[in-house]
Design a protein around this nucleic acid. Sequence first.
DNA 1: TTTTAATAAAGAATTATTTCTTTATTAAAA
DNA 2: TTTTAATAAAGAAATAATTCTTTATTAAAA
Lengths: 213, 213
Amino acid sequence: METKKQIVSSTPEPTIRRLPMYLSYLKNFLSDGREYISAPHIASDLRIDATTRTKDLAYIGISGKPKIGYSVPVLINYLEEFLGYNRNDLAFLVGAGNLGTALLKYEGFKNTGLRIVAAFDNDTRKIGGKIGGVEILPIDKLRNMIERMHIAIGIITTPEGVAQSIADMMIGWGIKAIWNFTPAIIKAPEGIFVENTSIYSNLAVIINKIQNQ
Amino acid sequence: METKKQIVSSTPEPTIRRLPMYLSYLKNFLSDGREYISAPHIASDLRIDATTRTKDLAYIGISGKPKIGYSVPVLINYLEEFLGYNRNDLAFLVGAGNLGTALLKYEGFKNTGLRIVAAFDNDTRKIGGKIGGVEILPIDKLRNMIERMHIAIGIITTPEGVAQSIADMMIGWGIKAIWNFTPAIIKAPEGIFVENTSIYSNLAVIINKIQNQ
DNA sequence: TTTTAATAAAGAATTATTTCTTTATTAAAA
DNA sequence: TTTTAATAAAGAAATAATTCTTTATTAAAA
Ligand SMILES: NC(=O)c1ccc[n+]([C@@H]2O[C@H](COP(=O)([O-])OP(=O)(O)OC[C@H]3O[C@@H](n4cnc5c(N)ncnc54)[C@H](O)[C@@H]3O)[C@@H](O)[C@H]2O)c1
Ligand SMILES: NC(=O)c1ccc[n+]([C@@H]2O[C@H](COP(=O)([O-])OP(=O)(O)OC[C@H]3O[C@@H](n4cnc5c(N)ncnc54)[C@H](O)[C@@H]3O)[C@@H](O)[C@H]2O)c1
């Protein structure tokens, strides 16, 4: 039987993961007052092959001028647009513990399009309080709130053991993407996107490098 | 001119990043009381191709039995050994703020080989105190402490702007690997390994997925 | 025993990503 | 102007990683 492969000409994931790095670098560069930057320049600073970088930027639809390079402010604009920093994506966070608190207090999200509009916990001592200006609500309000506010992104910072059940709830009530900070492997149906921020993966790479000198 | 390519037959990085996932999954599986597990079984649960998984496990030197699968306790042992969870790798953390505090309090590191033995900050209100049982020391003690304790791993959770200067210090005094949680791009000489845990990269992937439905 | 079916292992093919090479463009210098 | 050199863009090649295919192994069933 013949299967037709669907061609989804989208930006490669490695590219997407590199884009915030360019943005951080360029903002820094701009603060030095320089207006144009060239591919080889970025490449040598970032230790990425110049071609890779040129292609990354081509994906987001910006081109430079030979002999001159790219306009840094334009580049920054394009990157922010592509990364959705001009959008306003609302998210809920479940698990206002150590990590949850750090995320709720995190100033860095202000520059991105992400806004955590409420947090949920099952610890009565936390419920009713505010962290980083965000209210902590009882977990049984989650359903109503997701449905009412059409929240698309759910952040999970609960203990590993309850992560799947929280995810199931979120998905059931309409969340489209889950940002999972726990080591749990979240199972989700087709169409629901799960992104893991796994500190253990990073640690594994570090330890592996150290072991092999 | 001819250049001879050095063949470093090491475990691929994607594999290394997946290993902690297997470990988490298998520990969970073990708690159900089952002793053996097969490749297709893991594969379907983890939504990774069965071959990929078999190859991943082959890299860490474990083989299964046809018709039976792998012994879960043995698999767990091998994974923990490979990931260095039986080692005792000492680390320093610089920047005892929101994120630093979460990491210092994090119970999860206890199972891994990583031990954060001291934290450093330049905020006099924090210095002298303890977070998660770890002492907060003044930043100017960093040199002496790294040299005396032969610390190999440096964790950076300071504001982005000072990250490079902290890294330079760490490298100068003998740190071999830097775990950078800031969005800064850390420049380091050959031989010093820098691992970035970049929340922005994760966010970028999520937003990109949402934008393209 | 012999057969069967589940499974691991090895190898081949495919796909994705990066790096290298060539060509085209253009601002600045001659 | 014309030439030069820096650079982007396009295309080709190489590399890395994943997925598919075949073969070998082995415990359980017949
Ligand atoms: N602390 C870190 O630095 C860090 C780093 C990486 C990953 N993580 C992971 O993040 C998760 C949280 O870690 P932490 O250190 O913040 O733990 P924590 O115990 O401090 O926080 C967990 C929070 O979840 C709440 N909670 C528990 N069950 C709940 C439920 N059923 N519904 C709603 N809320 C519930 C708790 O009340 C608590 O506030 C863990 O899975 C951990 O592995 C933590
Ligand atoms: N908070 C989060 O959830 C989060 C998530 C991802 C990444 N980050 C990144 O982690 C870093 C820290 O974030 P945060 O929210 O914890 O910020 P924070 O301001 O709470 O913490 C920064 C800490 O660094 C200390 N510090 C500042 N300059 C220093 C110096 N020169 N030497 C030693 N210590 C110094 C400060 O005193 C403070 O304690 C930032 O770069 C941020 O982008 C934070």
